[in-house]
Each structure stands twice: as C-alpha cells, then as structure tokens.
Nucleic acid binder design. Structure first.
Lengths: 268, 268
DNA sequence: CTCAATTTGTTCGTATGTATG
DNA sequence: ACATACATACGAACAAATTGA
C-alpha cells in the first residue's frame, strides 16, 4: 500500500464545537481529574472560590454527570477541593504555591544548589561498575566507583541518583565520598585541574524501579539528567544519572548576554 | 492535630520480591505497554530480535497472561513488534533511532536552530493581546501583537507557540513578522539594542487544546518553554510560550567552562 | 415560614472494558 | 475460548442541603 505524501500545508481541524476527550485506555474520569488539577495549579480557580456546577462542567468537558463526579471525588481525596451538597465544590488548597525545584545550568550555581539542599540520602547500592553507555566513551577510565542513592527533603523523595566516580579519584577520599554529596567534594578537589562539564536533560517516564523509589505511579513524567565531568587531561572523572519527579522541576537559562566569567573559568 | 516531625533517616522499603504495578486508575495493560515501549526505546531489545516469551514477561511484571497479551497487542498496532504464533514477538522497528529535538540554551544557537528548522506553520490566531502573567510585568509594554501557531516538520506537529511582540516593534515589519518565524527576524532587527533574554522550562501535561493541536493524548507529558527578550532600555519586547511534545525534546548545557563571549555580547 | 431554584448526593439499569484463572 | 468478578461510563430519576426571594 502506498503512503500518500502530503506536501501541501498541514490539515486544520477547526472543530470549534466539541473538543471531546479520547478513549485511549486511560479512564475518562482520570483524564478529567488531571485536567481540573492542572487548572487548579494554574490558578483558574483560587483558594476559597467555588468551581462551576457539575452541570456546567459536564457540558464543558462533554462527559456524563457520574464521570465528572468521579473526577471531583479524586480531587477531594487529594484535599484540593471539598464538595458540599447544595453549595458546590470549594477550593480548599492553594495548588499554585507548590514548591519548585530549580535546576541550575551553571557549574558554580549547581554546586551551591547541592550544598544548600542539606538533603538526607539513603544509599541503595555501593560497588564498582561502569557508567551507562549514554555517557559515551570519551575519556572513559578503566574502573569506576558507583553509588545509587535516594535523596530526601524531609520525608519526601525528590531524586534518584546513580553516581560513577573514577576509581583513582575516589580512592583519595573514599570515606568522604561515601558519606556525603559527591559533586561538591569533587569540585573542591579538582579545582584548577577541572576540564569540561556538561549536563543533558530529557523527559522520560517512571519505570518500576524509579516509581518505587520516588514514590510515584508507573508512567509518571520524570526528568532524566545526565551530568559528566572531565578533568583537564580529558579523563571522564564523574558521571551522574539523576531522575527527578518532573512535576517539581524548573529550569531557567539566561540566553543572552552570556554571564560574566567566574574565577574558576579557564579560557584558551 | 499535630504533625509528627521525623528527623530520623527516611524509611526504606526493601521489598526485593515483588515490585508489582499499582492499581491507580490507569489500566494495567496500558502501564505494562508503556514500560515495554520504554525498554524498546532504550534498546533492551533491538530490531530483529525476539522479546522474551509471554510466560517469562508475565513473571517479570507479575501480571496475568491475558494482560501481557493485551499490552503486546498495543505495541503491535504501533508497528513496534509483530507477534507470530509459535515463533514469538519480533521487534519490527528501531525505536532507539527516534528523532530528538535539541533545544538550544544560548541565544545564537537558538536563532540558528529556528532558522534551520525550515518548518511550516499554521497560524491559528493573530490579534492584539497581552502576554500571560507568567512572563511577569518587568518592562511590560502597553500593547502587543499576538500570534498563535502550530509548527510542523513535514506533516507532524512538533510545537504550539504563542508569540507576543511589542506593538511598536511589530509595526516596523508587520508583513515579515506575520509570514515567518518571529525570533530570527527580531534578532536581526534588534542587533546591538538587544538587552537580556531568558528561557524558562517546565514539564507539564497536555490540556484539551494542546492535545488537539499536537495530536497527542490528553495528559501526555509536554514541555512548556517561556522565552522573554528585553531591549537595552529594559522594555519587554518579545514573549513566547511554546509547548513541545516532551518525548522528542532534549536539552544540553555546558556547565563549565563558560563559553567564550560572542560579538553580540555587551558586558557592563 | 414557605417556595422555588440551584447544587451536590444516591441509586437504577444497561453496556462495555478490564483482569484473573 | 470460557466463566467470573469488578471497574468504567452513560442517562435518568429522585433525594437532600443551601440559598435567596
């Protein structure tokens, strides 16, 4: 069968009438709850206000009354709203004020950020194994110390990290690396012998392991960050593979002008 | 009621036995299909290889045979695998080679990126309205030209953009702004009178509008990028709110050393 | 106080989808 | 392929609480 190649402008489907939800396996009421939750986070309805009546919402989303009620029940168990017979559905939590984790995109800011977290970590694994292939083979050392940790702020997990540290580097401060954040210590040790460092980011979804450790549902959006640090000789000293709950992550970069060079910068 | 403050190390749930899937509203077979799809994209099973037998998979994921078959059927309609009775489940598409959209985090690279896309856009809206409150009020002009477009590579939509351009700036090249990418043209016009530019990124999910325009399911992870450009006088000249399908987006930043300043950089 | 309008709560019946063994 | 149990979704009818005329 031939595929029809369309080189004309893309189709416009301007159904102004019914932007109805699609049956794609995910229950309708879950989808609707997600959409409402999103609007609450966006401040469409503020704390203390009442949502539109179920009748109005059913018309807007083109679902039945029962389905809409199920969606609202979901939000009620999350303490986002409270429903009262005869009155309506009241917003009981300010979801617009949820805390965001700002992920720095510059070396010194990143170190300061990790230092400032004061997080407590639970070490799941500590052994010697090679970094994942995603890190590439550029400057790969022969042996790496590896640790896998869950980091908590209070009692809520916010990241799952796998750190790979060049064995020689690790040996110099084995105890310190085992008992605290690796990157800040590495930064102090490397000083002027530091080479390039990059950070790659992609959006993914939680697999079984990540879902369990971060206490989210399987399939939840997760941000995967890979950080690589080379020393001046080009040896890949450090590789980290970090998973963050995507909901609580923001990134801000200054596109222009380029920030002023810091004292740690070495220019050719 | 008192909140119990826990200053002891966080709990460890080390159920090594059954990392089973959770009933959270999303059908089991959809969750399993998602996990398998993810592993196919990760290259766990390559093109031309056979997946483990259903029996083995059911044990790994702790689901029934029928559920696993349903999950595999999902992947088959996506042409990721082909099931043959008596043979097994064959990988029929190389999902590891899916195209990634690299989002630049530096001004010149971003302009070059947009120029190089050669994308075709469909304009949904073109009017005069104010930027969303997320952009802040710092240097806000009195009036903005606004356009909302869906950008396509070929016939597949990859981004939904809302652009707000200071009315005075727009008036100078009204035609050109209406008929092509806004940012590259703005960059040429501003030249040395350009001030600061920032880019903010957050992970969100598709609402009805975004889902329809990007042709994805409601609730799919979406990356929301807000770009703001000020001129040298501090006037907010340009605001863009862009939604990308998160699946196809990567970001790479050089943490260290800071890149060498370009000719457009003005330092204080 | 009563009444009507509004709003959420409850319960049917029916059809289809999901998950297990 | 079958039997069973439970979840999802719809429309409809009626009950109960709230509000203001």
């Amino acid at each position: 069968m031939l595929i029809q190649v369309d080189s004309s402008p893309p189709p416009i489907d301007d159904q102004l009438v019914a932007p109805s939800l699609v049956r794609n396996g995910v229950p309708l009421y879950v989808q609707v709850a997600g959409l409402l939750r999103r609007r609450l986070e966006g401040g469409d309805w503020r704390l203390g206000e009442y949502l539109p009546a179920i009748e109005a919402l059913t018309q807007e989303y083109r679902v039945s009354r029962v389905t809409m009620r199920q969606a609202l029940a979901e939000l009620e168990v999350e303490n986002l709203v409270r429903r009262s017979q005869g009155k309506g559905t009241l917003v009981t939590r300010d979801a617009t004020q949820e805390r965001w984790l700002i992920l720095p995109t510059e070396w010194n800011a990143l170190i300061a950020h990790i230092d400032g977290l004061g997080s407590r970590a639970v070490t799941l694994v500590s052994d010697f194994s090679m970094p994942p292939p995603e890190a590439g083979r550029d400057g790969l050392a022969a042996k790496y110390w590896h640790t896998r940790r869950v980091n908590y702020t209070g009692t809520t997990p916010y990241s799952l990290t796998s750190v790979y540290l060049d064995q020689a580097t690790h040996a110099r401060d084995a105890d310190a690396y085992s008992n605290g954040p690796v990157l800040p210590l590495l930064a102090r040790r490397l000083k002027r012998s530091m080479g390039k460092a990059v950070q790659r980011l992609a959006v993914s979804t939680a697999d079984l392991e990540v879902a369990r450790q971060l206490q989210v549902a399987v399939g939840t959006p997760v941000v995967e960050v890979i950080r690589i640090v080379w020393d001046r000789a080009g040896r890949m000293v450090y590789v980290a593979d970090v998973r963050y709950h995507a909901r609580h992550l923001r990134i801000e970069t200054i596109l222009h002008p380029l920030p002023a060079p810091t004292d740690q910068v070495t220019r050719k």
